[in-house]
Design a protein around this nucleic acid. Sequence first.
DNA 1: TTATCTATTATATCTAGACATAAATGGATG
DNA 2: CATCCATTTATGTCTAGATATAATAGATAA
Lengths: 257, 257
Amino acid sequence: MSARGSYLEIKHHVLGKIRGGDWPPGTLVPKERELAEAFGCARMTVHRALRELAEEGVVERRRRSGTRVALQTTRSAMLEIPRVDHEIERQGATYRYRRLARRLVLPNDAVAGHLGLPATRQALRVDCLHFATDVPFQLEERWINLDAVPDARAESFRDTPPNVWLLERRPWFEAEHVISAAGASARHAERLNLAVGDSLLVVERRTWNDTGVITYVRMLHPGRFYRLRTSAGPAPRAPGPAGHASFGPQVPLPSTP
Amino acid sequence: MSARGSYLEIKHHVLGKIRGGDWPPGTLVPKERELAEAFGCARMTVHRALRELAEEGVVERRRRSGTRVALQTTRSAMLEIPRVDHEIERQGATYRYRRLARRLVLPNDAVAGHLGLPATRQALRVDCLHFATDVPFQLEERWINLDAVPDARAESFRDTPPNVWLLERRPWFEAEHVISAAGASARHAERLNLAVGDSLLVVERRTWNDTGVITYVRMLHPGRFYRLRTSAGPAPRAPGPAGHASFGPQVPLPSTP
DNA sequence: TTATCTATTATATCTAGACATAAATGGATG
DNA sequence: CATCCATTTATGTCTAGATATAATAGATAA
């Protein structure tokens, strides 16, 4: 599992103590020098092990005070939000895209606030649908800040989905996601081929650049299809990248009657 | 911002090149030795900077190939799932708890699978409600694996919510979350004081220990109240812990008519 | 008593080397 | 031409030091 004398061995040792109940929350972990001596390695090796455990939230470290086993008040999980077309194809369905509408609008106050624009400034509104094997999978309602992305004026988005188009020319560096549930309005129901009031999982996303908010998008999914999955834990079973296995939404597969 | 000659300086330098568009996705980042020479520091310092950028998904590293600016196909976000009572009180509402039911049951096949139990083995089912200022905020439907937590047999959960009780005696080390939307059934509607069919945000969680699955819980929230918020990005505005600001669900505050 | 300064100490970072490891490369061989 | 192998090389890890930084505890002064 872990090479002898490596920082991983030390991580596993400490984790084992905590998992086994030998070191309950609040316990003072041996100091770096002591662990280094005990394992017969350099202090830097111990340091890396403890630093990674601290980053994972397993222990808390403070100068002079030492390293303590953290209390489990909250746990964070990695949530990976993949590109919708990738996700659909990864699950073996066929991806199809349709642009529904594209127009310049004066956003309402809420959206203007999200975009960081004055309410008198036009933004580009694009609506489109993403299909998984002809079943509507995601309804995308997007506002694009034309100050941040002026070349969007010349783009029709008839064939290229806005998310792909934007990713290719405006890399973003910060994002905020809000996940909620809502009932389908008449318009949503019609577009997603649902009944009015059916449950939708709504993911809203704002992305920033150095220049400010690039885009605000509301992604609506039939609740029965879309499931965001996260997995977290300092000691993953399958050693995935960054120690987090992650899954995307669940795509409706062609039913076999 | 970043100390001279530090690994942070190198991180910011590389990030700046990427953000500024000088190094589009796919660009080969200078090798560690070159950067170390350019910055007049040791290779380990450069190594740490690049390793952290790789962990954040900004660059991709492969031995012999070198370090490349990653393409932004997916982005991951930190999702912090706090304890429901903490979250309610943090937002200034009053937390109240009520146990609805507690009984030994034979779980159905789906739940048995989640718990990793044979369908003939009993599990403990606990239903309870969490209120924010007398408004139902979360309906909790929980199954507890009695093989993993035998002392739960003797606990009534009348005053102590299962999540708190479990956290105090069975720390867990791995969890899986599934987030979806669903319409309220008749029973859900009654318990949450909603209409049948109203949208719910459903968070399912399974937690593991060394001994196996501890518990499987379904947490149902009125969609209009509960919003999970995440924030992500390699270059956060406010330097928070681990570079991720995070928020909990939105609590219904007492309305001021 | 209270506030402030100081020494101590554990973590945080850095250095200049070393060897390990994986993968791309080019050459030798069939 | 295809296959295999040794070489090269960039990253991954480790060592044994060093200095920097922050927070505690104790000493001192107001």
